[in-house]
Amino acid sequence: MINATPQCYFNGCTYGAVNPQPWIVLGLMGLAVIVVLTRKLSAIPEMAKITEKWALMGIATIFFALTLLQLSAYASTLAWHCAHGKLTQKTTAAYHDLYHGFFDTALRISHEHPSPCKGKLVTDMDISREPGNTTFLFLGYFLYPVDIRINSTTKNSECLIFFRKTGALDGIKDP
């Protein structure tokens, strides 16, 4: 199955559904063989030219094999998106898929309160550690210009954002 979410952006790149590790290890072994054979055979004068040519062909084969693997992964990703009519997607749909845990909340708040406002996040999450910290930072991005991230304290806040807070309404009194 093709992964429809973004591909790697930090490490351990996958080639679509293919795990590249065995291919890379195979490539490394091939390169090691090429180096050893070249060192041994290039000492024989009549073998030097042909060895050089075969070594280059070997290196090119390994490089292009992995390049084709990568290209085929991209092609199958595109083919999957084509087949499902998803070559483009709306921003809200994409964020809903990626960050549905909190993007929808942020979107609703932004619609109801579109003007800039200094806010304070009231939550049961521990935002000093993961995963609460990342959720807080991303929520802060989606909510802005309702600002819950910069110098935000209860004292200077103009609005309170209740998010993953049990009994959120209990503390609110009618004016």
Binding site: C8, L66, Q70
Partner: peptide, 17 residues
């Protein structure tokens, strides 16, 4: 450099060459 899968086999080719 050599085993991460991020760089094709360019680091290894550089070392070999």
């Amino acid at each position: 450099m050599f085993l991460s899968g991020n760089w094709n086999v360019i680091w290894a080719i550089c070392a070999a060459v």
